[in-house]
């Protein structure tokens, strides 16, 4: 049982990492909210927030202060306990994957040897929180939104797992640091291009972003699963969504785009490359959201079951064959 003993240094490291990570989640929500509104404005030939601070950069902070002061409404027929619990349940599991993300060679919370599995396992709790929110609201729009979200997430977990597995077959490790270290010479988006594309499409669906944002389709379902949430409950859902986006983009960066590798990436400076890649991927997700219309539900399911899963299975088998022959 030697491995179970934690020294004081390890505990201190975990506490500091957790504090930094929670603040990163909130800062990420502020930056991405601002970037989303600004990019939407640029795409629609508008200006976006302009008046509060230079180019409106304080807008999200003002929105946050306002939303804290809003009245919290619990509907009369709702399940009070579950209704209060759902935003916390949405927020907590999205913080945990940050603990195993390798920000740079020496900057990470903890490098466990099943890091990838840990991230996938923890981030699927998010679906449960969405379902709890829809169920507890006792509202037909919330219920429809959460049912859609559950079926969508179950369908898209499979291609995500299969495409990640084909990378793991190449690297022979689940450890995030190990996968990054294996990409010193060539990025895996060139070795596994099919897996990379399948992962990026499924990740967009997994985080409920447009064009797959059916759980909160505004034209049909008012606001989807968070229809009944006001004030900070609603903003916790939004923060969780942006943190989830960060997680899937970070996994894509680690597995396909070389992690912290880049020119001048020393022990700690690699974090800059890592964050640059992650935010570029997130900007692409925002770009896609404001460019493409929403798909229909049968199209969404057809895409997952008829195209993504067969292609990722074939990709996995081919990878296994090639790895075996070499």
């Amino acid at each position: 049982m030697d491995t179970m003993q934690l020294s004081f240094y390890d505990v201190l490291r975990m506490v500091i990492a957790f504090v930094l990570i929670v603040s990163l989640v909130f800062i990420n929500a502020i930056i991405m909210g601002y970037m989303e509104r600004k990019m939407a404005a640029k795409i629609q030939r508008r200006w976006g927030p302009m008046e509060v601070g230079f180019q409106g950069w304080l807008q999200l902070i003002l929105d946050g202060v306002k939303i804290i002061a809003k009245q919290l409404i619990v509907p009369k027929d709702a399940d009070r306990t579950l209704f209060r619990m759902a935003p916390l349940l949405a927020f907590t599991p999205v913080v945990l994957p940050f603990l195993v993300l390798p920000f740079s060679k020496s900057l990470f919370g903890r490098d466990i040897n099943l890091g990838l599995i840990f991230i996938i396992a923890v981030s699927s709790i998010n679906v449960l929180s969405i379902f709890v929110a829809g169920w507890a609201s006792n509202n037909k729009y919330s219920m429809f939104g959460s049912i859609r979200s559950v079926s969508q997430n179950i369908a898209y977990e499979i291609p995500i797992l299969l495409s990640l597995l084909s990378v793991v077959l190449v690297t022979h490790t689940y450890s995030m640091q190990g996968i990054v270290a294996a990409q010193g010479s060539i990025w895996f988006c060139l070795v596994q291009p099919v897996a990379c594309i399948i992962y990026l499409i499924s990740a967009t669906a997994e985080t409920n972003r447009a064009p797959f944002d059916l759980p909160e389709a505004e034209s049909e379902l008012t606001a989807g699963y968070h229809t009944e949430y006001s004030g900070f409950g609603f903003s916790l859902f939004v923060i969780a969504e942006y943190a989830n986006m960060f997680t899937v983009c970070a996994v894509a960066t680690v597995l396909f785009f070389g992690g912290w590798h880049g020119p001048f990436s020393g022990e700690y400076l690699g974090a800059l490359w890592f964050l640059l890649k992650v935010f570029l991927l997130m900007l692409i997700m925002v770009w896609v959201r404001w460019t493409y219309p929403r798909v229909r539900f049968d199209q969404l399911m057809n895409l997952a079951w008829k195209y993504l899963i067969p292609f990722s299975l074939v990709n996995l088998l081919l990878t296994a064959l090639i790895v075996k022959c070499i």
Partner: peptide, 23 residues
């Protein structure tokens, strides 16, 4: 809310579909 006269400049462009989230 569109390009020529942009409500977003004053932070008023977030048209929320649900009555619970708007001011």
């Amino acid at each position: 809310g569109m390009a020529r006269i942009d409500m977003a400049r004053y932070g008023a462009e977030v048209f929320r579909p649900s009555a619970r989230q708007c001011d």
